[in-house]
């Protein structure tokens, strides 16, 4: 394909728009989380800055930026300053392959609402979620602090274990849609979302993404109360902010992937595709917050037990059953 000036301008426009949307989305997800957690606990939550607290994310950013950026004396300076970016960049990169709506007809040309329709989209996503482990691992290692190191060790083993069940739960989806490209996966769900055929894979994927973005039942890497703040104990200011924002961008990206793989992405009756997509992502994000407000943290051995002895065999069995079903159909 030859890139014309219009193509490049369109691409840059899409990238800038996507950045604006996901960064704003992540900032407001933080606010939404604080407010919803408040309501779950019969509180009100932050409501002082602006109407309904809507300017709170702005205030938080100002606070983060004006805070002192401290690097411990014993820390490995290079890795220490690189680790937050290594946690946030894979989370943002995942959005490159997410189709947020049906292709538009704009000025007589087709515009995909997707940065890049990779033919190995699912693999790309799996690779990025593996790379995201480095942020956690190196952040904890470079801090040269016992809590951070313990947190990053936990994070490493947890992310690697749950990557496995997450990948295996996506295999039936790929088998059904016969493609690794996300656009094709969405198109394959035109008649029926995959959650109908693959409820078990959906549940495994849901549990695995909770573990992937280190959310509460699986928040062992940052376990406050045991490890101070886990792998980002030594971080302050905007470096901590980057870890924090990365976590919330991760929530949005994993929510969008869950809705793409199992709920038919932007497909839905009546409402425009983009609205359906945002509704589904919002529902998943709400689920993340709701689960956080409900469940206690798992113990380390329970976490490993659930991952290795339950989810992974179940995912393998699910692949086998799907294979039989596809062969005998």
């Amino acid at each position: 394909m030859i890139w014309t000036a219009t193509d490049i301008a369109l691409m840059i426009g899409k990238i800038v728009l996507l950045y604006a949307i996901i960064l704003t989305g992540a900032a407001y997800l933080v606010l939404a989380e604080r407010r919803i957690l408040g309501f779950l606990q019969d509180r009100i939550g932050p409501n002082r800055v602006g109407p309904f607290g809507l300017l709170q994310p702005l205030a938080d950013v100002i606070k983060m930026i004006t805070k002192e950026d401290m690097i411990p004396k014993a820390a490995d300076r290079l890795l220490f300053s690189m680790a937050p970016a290594m946690a946030a960049i894979p989370a943002i990169l995942t959005f490159a392959i997410i189709p947020v709506g049906a292709p538009l007809q704009l000025f007589g040309r087709q515009v995909n609402l997707q940065i890049a329709d990779l033919n190995v989209g699912v693999l790309f996503f799996m690779a990025l979620s593996s790379v995201a482990v480095y942020g956690v691992a190196l952040g904890g290692w470079a801090s040269n602090s016992k809590y951070a190191l313990l947190g990053s060790i936990r994070g490493l083993s947890q992310l690697i274990s749950y990557e496995l069940s997450m990948g295996l739960s996506l295999v039936p989806v790929v088998m059904l849609s016969k493609s690794l490209s996300l656009a094709d996966i969405v198109n394959a769900q035109a008649d029926m979302p995959f959650i109908v055929y693959q409820p078990v894979a959906f549940l495994i994927f849901l549990v695995s993404i909770l573990a992937e973005c280190r959310r509460i039942p699986f928040d062992l890497p940052e376990a406050e109360g045991e490890l101070v703040a886990g792998f980002h104990t030594e971080y302050s200011g905007m470096r901590f902010g980057l870890f924090f924002v990365g976590e919330y961008i991760n929530i949005i990206s994993l929510s969008s992937l869950a809705s793409l793989f199992f709920l038919g992405g932007w497909r839905g009756p009546l409402l425009p595709p983009i609205v359906w997509f945002f509704i589904k992502v919002g529902l998943f994000s709400f689920l993340f917050i709701w689960v956080r407000g409900t469940l206690p943290r798992l113990r380390y051995d329970q976490l490993m037990h659930l991952g290795w002895k339950f989810l992974t065999p179940l995912a393998l069995l699910n692949i086998l059953v799907t294979g039989w079903w596809l062969a005998l159909r």
Partner: peptide, 28 residues
């Protein structure tokens, strides 16, 4: 036991969901 666990998780989720609509106890 797994079904029992799932039932208990869902019970917990339903309890917290009901609390969303309850009047907050906060005094402003």
């Amino acid at each position: 036991p797994i079904l029992n666990d799932i039932k208990e998780i869902l019970t917990g989720l339903s309890i917290t969901f009901r609390h969303i609509f309850r009047k907050p106890v906060t005094v402003q």
